[in-house]
């Protein structure tokens, strides 16, 4: 740890009440070997400028609050170490979302889509709690487990060019959550979710750039979920053409 070394943090500022458009403001902060970009922002907030706004909470990459563009790449700022960047670090709000203020983006659109895909167990019949748990083998759990790991940080939306060009696209995190429930042995709600997933704004809007999976901090691999949904939807289509098909 060197006491004198500093870095420059270029922070995108946007104060809707006074600014017509965002601009960058530079802050010089100490370089501390163990620090992440969020620590540097907290240094700014505590010591240099109390007016900078951003979301954060857990500082351990699980609450999903602190996603931002760091040198152009969507990252959790609590897991982006200063040591991995140069002497100047550019911090912007997540791409493809409207900026509410400074590094805070409006995520209403995601919340609406997430709600629309019905992210909960839809069981054929409700089993009383007194009858105990549903049996689910480790293999059955493994099938969907990876897709439960999404922390809703929205880095995937900030990386997705399809979402940038068509805001109607349901998007990676929501579609992979639909897939997660479809794969769960306790669920029978796939047909309902397909109304959204298999629609034009659903998986078929995806051209498999794969950026979502590249940036996912939890290795959920939403691109995989979407391609698997495409294949399953295609099978549905051909099955329906067969005699006796739906």
């Amino acid at each position: 740890m060197s006491n004198d070394r500093t870095i420059t943090l270029e922070v995108m500022r946007y104060r809707p009440e006074t600014d017509a458009a965002p601009s960058f403001q530079s802050y010089v902060v100490p370089y501390v070997e163990e620090w992440v970009v969020l620590d540097a922002l907290n240094y700014v907030k505590d010591n240099l400028d109390t007016t900078v706004s951003y979301r954060w909470s857990c500082h351990m990459a699980v609450c999903g609050s602190c996603g931002m563009m760091i040198d152009g790449e969507p990252k959790l700022s609590c897991k982006a170490f200063l040591r991995d960047y140069g002497s100047k670090i550019r911090v912007e709000p997540l791409s493809h979302f409207p900026i509410e203020r400074d590094l805070v983006v409006v995520i209403d659109d995601f919340i609406e889509k997430f709600t629309r895909i019905r992210p909960y167990i839809i069981a054929q019949s409700e089993k009383p709690v007194s009858e105990g748990e549903y049996l689910q083998t480790p293999a059955q759990l493994h099938k969907y487990k990876q897709f439960t790991l999404c922390i809703n940080c929205l880095l995937c939306y900030a990386a997705c060019p399809q979402y940038a060009h068509n805001p109607e696209f349901v998007g990676p995190a929501a579609l992979s959550m639909a897939h997660r429930y479809n794969l769960d042995s306790r669920d029978s709600g796939r047909d309902l979710r397909q109304e959204v997933s298999a629609s034009h704004e659903g998986v078929w809007e995806c051209s498999f750039v794969g950026a979502c999976s590249d940036v996912c901090p939890k290795h959920v691999d939403p691109a995989a979920a979407i391609q698997q949904t495409k294949i399953a939807s295609t099978m549905d289509y051909y099955k329906a053409l067969l005699p006796g098909g739906k």
């Binding site: 946007y14 809707p16 458009a21 791409s95 493809h96 409207p98 900026i99 509410e100 940038a164 060009h165």
Partner: peptide, 14 residues
């Protein structure tokens, strides 16, 4: 006071 700012993404050079 709210005025969410939308950043345009270029259709041709993205």
């Amino acid at each position: 006071g709210r005025k969410p700012y939308i950043r345009e993404v270029s259709k041709t050079t993205w």
